[in-house]
């Protein structure tokens, strides 16, 4: 009987509608107004790579040890180096990073002994061409410059 009454008065449906009604409350709004409002990503976010430079003298921190290139599962990092006769160390000449194949796993970052290579919080990596996704040393040191929109 009870069951019959419940089904006559559509109790189950109103129960559900009441849930949806409760969720109309503006405090449940979750939508982010990207790109007008840029989301804040986590500190450890693994986004665009950056090759760190020493802030004091502008020299690169990379010691051209090639460990990142060896660690990468996709072998997409190419480190070019030249032997410096004076310091008897290797100097970094070129550094290419093929973003189009990167899966942001962070293994290269873990492998770097001097924290020169770092995955940063930049997440806007779209490019108009395939070649645009291949970053050279300059690009890696400067980082991406996404357009900022204002609404």
């Amino acid at each position: 009987m009870n069951k019959f009454l419940r089904s006559i008065f559509l109790v189950d449906l109103f129960q559900g509608l009441w849930v949806t009604f409760r969720n109309q409350n503006p405090k449940y709004i979750y939508t982010e107004q990207y790109p007008g409002e840029r989301p804040k990503v986590a500190e450890r976010y693994r986004g665009a790579p950056r090759l760190n430079i020493n802030p004091d003298n502008g020299e690169t921190l990379c010691i051209a040890c090639n460990l990142c290139a060896l660690a990468c599962p996709e072998t997409l990092i190419v480190v070019g180096s030249e032997r410096n006769e004076q310091t008897r160390r290797k100097d970094l000449t070129t550094f290419t990073y093929d973003l189009s194949r990167c899966m942001f796993c962070g293994l290269c970052e873990d492998a770097c002994p001097v924290d020169a290579l770092e995955l940063t919080q930049d997440f806007e990596l779209a490019a108009y061409t395939r070649d645009g996704a291949i970053w050279d040393r300059q690009m890696l040191e400067e980082g991406p410059r996404p357009t900022r929109y204002k609404f």
Binding site: Y28, Y30, V41, A42, E43, R44, Y45, R46, M103, F104, C105, G106, L119
Partner: peptide, 19 residues
């Protein structure tokens, strides 16, 4: 909406949300 909260924990912990 609730899944987002879990993904935020992942993002804070290891820097990625899905993979």
């Amino acid at each position: 909406r609730e899944r987002e909260e879990v993904l935020k924990i992942f993002e804070n912990y290891c820097g990625a949300r899905l993979t």
